[in-house]
């Protein structure tokens, strides 16, 4: 039996614990707050009172804490000899990420960055087509990711989270690189009137191949439905997807807040978090290398950090300069 030790009990931990329980592992949770509620909501799992106890009893550690705490916790897990799953971004800086990778290498443990968009089925089938050459040579990619701004707290503190670029847009920065290869230079812009609470950013990548990518992200102050879309074009054709355009059910007159009725489940099919954690768990048990590696996580942080530097200098930044 495998025991997974989860650190943190916030939003992403909610997604992870459900998947871990589906995978049939024993789950321990340690968190500064919310651990009791997390376990109570899911009906299984055990709250442990200290980091040391969690590390000593776990086979695999899952770091679901705020970004700025990742390095110390991954290093502690590595020192305890445990494989680690770490939420994205691996860290706020390239320096911290490299230190985490080195600590895991020295300890001989695996480090799995949880870039879950690589496991979303619409993105996965698109990447498979690209990797099989169905689109030929990629020339231009576009990605968008729009949602309601996170509440006050560490997410909104750029020093702690890296802001919208490092926290939200890193998904698509990683994906663009997965499809089109290493990035040569980055140009980022970010707008958002002071005080309005809405943040909109765009990052343009020029890949070493000459391929180009545009990644847009929005944290809207007012509530908006979460939406993602992409279009990927190459010499062999193009693929596109818009989460707003592909409903498997559409209801008009079903359930309403004051009336019972037909209400489709929000999501159909397997949770991408389950797909992701199953792949990491299999690797820990001796299975194949997962589709995303610690090096991929580092390169994603490197691109995002270059984008943040581009915002500061208001110019394009080459990846070499950003190191």
């Amino acid at each position: 039996m495998t025991t997974v030790g989860m650190l943190g009990a916030g939003g992403i931990a909610t997604m992870h614990i459900a998947s871990w329980l589906r995978l049939g592992v024993d789950v321990l949770v340690h968190s500064l707050e919310g651990a009791d509620e997390l376990v109570a909501r899911h009906g299984r799992g055990e709250v442990v009172g200290s980091l040391d106890e969690l590390l000593s009893r776990s086979d695999l550690v899952d770091v679901c804490t705020p970004t700025h705490t990742h390095r110390a916790l991954v290093e502690a897990a590595a020192a305890a000899g445990k494989d680690v799953v770490c939420e994205k971004p691996l860290a706020r800086t390239v320096e911290d990420t490299e230190a985490m990778i080195e600590a895991c290498r020295r300890a001989g443990v695996a480090l799995h960055p949880a870039h879950v968009v690589r496991f979303f089925p619409e993105y996965s089938v698109m990447h498979d087509a690209v990797a099989r050459g169905r689109l030929g040579d990629l020339a231009v990619q576009r990605y968008d990711r729009h949602g309601t701004a996170p509440g006050p707290g560490w997410f909104r503190d750029e020093g702690l989270s890296g802001g919208i670029v490092m926290d939200l847009m890193i998904h698509d920065l990683d994906f663009a690189r997965w499809n089109a290869g290493p990035v040569a230079s980055v140009r980022a812009v970010r707008s958002g009137a002071e005080g309005s609470g809405t943040v909109a950013a765009n990052v343009v990548l020029t890949h070493r191949s000459g391929s180009i990518s545009s990644v847009g992200g929005v944290w809207s102050a007012g509530p908006v439905a979460f939406r993602t879309r992409f279009e990927v074009a190459g010499t062999g054709g193009l693929l596109r997807h818009d989460s707003a355009d592909n409903p498997v059910t559409w209801t008009n007159g079903g359930s309403t807040p004051d009336r019972d009725g037909y209400a489709p489940k929000v999501a159909m099919g397997e949770s991408p978090y389950l797909t992701e954690l199953r792949e990491f768990l299999a690797a820990t048990r001796g299975g194949p290398t997962p589709r995303v590696t610690a090096q991929d996580g580092l390169e994603a942080v490197r691109i995002a950090q270059a984008a943040l530097q581009s915002l500061v200098v208001d110019d394009a930044v080459s990846l070499e300069d950003a190191r």
Binding site: L138, A139, S185, V204, G210, I212, A233, D314, A316
Partner: peptide, 11 residues
């Protein structure tokens, strides 16, 4: 006031 562009001829 400020413009950046990137482009290619890959297609």
């Amino acid at each position: 006031v400020r413009v950046h562009a990137t482009a290619n001829r890959l297609l």
